[in-house]
């Protein structure tokens, strides 16, 4: 299997899962209600599991996670965005898990190198998507304050959503169809939540789709510094 998995695609998917898992891990001890501590940790653990499988197919998981420089990471800019308030985290989850679910469903249905992984992951991701949708409905159509926060979050993260449908080497999927399905699904959820699809551009001005090419946003460097510091302080040590 190792030889047949395309490296660029494995890194893209693996880094998405790794980085989002890390961000969700930052919630530990800070969640709005105890039940949500458990839920967010479940999602983070699923993603970390996916990341480990994906990274291990193309190298040593720890070398890849801890010893690459920022520019070598291939994750979407969306997943590296800081948690913000709970609304930002939920919208980031909604945007990403809808995409990831569509992607893994298609990969699982095919017979490509990612089919076995996707078959398992698609069930996990279906739950992540459901979690995000349920929260979107409650926060969008909750109080005025929660509605306002959701509007802000939807808009703030909107410009990172175009990148998800950029081509990735070795990822053989119908991106246009996926993009349409994504828009349809997100719009339906937002409408039910009394929210609207934001209107702005779906990619940044100079860095469209650049996460996959190793161009990231400023907060990502700090995130990596924290994540890699201990590992890098003890070269060659095992843990």
């Amino acid at each position: 299997m190792t030889t047949t998995v395309p490296t660029a695609a494995a890194l893209a998917l693996g880094d998405d899962a790794l980085v989002l898992s890390h961000r969700l891990g930052e919630w530990a001890g800070h969640a709005p209600v105890l039940e949500e501590e458990v839920a967010l940790a479940n999602i983070a653990l699923d993603l970390l599991g996916q990341a480990r499988v994906l990274l291990s197919t193309v190298g040593d998981e720890d070398e890849l996670a801890y010893l690459r420089e920022e520019r070598a990471f291939r994750n979407l800019q969306l997943v590296e965005q800081p948690n913000g308030d709970f609304a930002h985290t939920i919208v980031r989850q909604l945007y990403f898990s809808t995409y990831q679910h569509l992607l893994y469903a298609e990969l699982a249905a095919g017979d490509g190198p990612f089919a076995p992984l996707a078959a398992k992951a698609v069930k996990e991701v279906a739950y992540h998507r459901d979690h995000a949708e349920q929260w979107t409905l409650r926060l969008g159509d909750g109080t005025d304050a929660s509605h306002e926060r959701m509007l802000r979050a939807c808009t703030a993260l909107w410009r990172f959503t175009g990148e998800m449908f950029q081509p990735v080497d070795g990822l053989d999927v119908d991106r246009t169809r996926m993009d349409t399905a994504w828009l349809e699904s997100v719009e339906t959820v937002l409408r039910r939540a009394t929210l609207l699809l934001p209107e702005g551009p779906r990619s940044g001005a100079w860095s469209a789709g650049a996460g996959r090419q190793g161009v990231h946003t400023e907060p990502f460097g700090r995130m990596l510094a924290e994540m890699q510091h201990l590992h890098r302080s003890h070269p060659g040590a095992s843990w």
Binding site: G25, A28, L48, L55, Y66, L230, A237
Partner: peptide
């Protein structure tokens, strides 16, 4: 959690 030195340790700690 955010500084766990290996992915295995990070999963366990989470």
């Amino acid at each position: 959690i955010t500084r766990a030195p290996s992915l295995r340790r990070k999963a366990i700690l989470m």
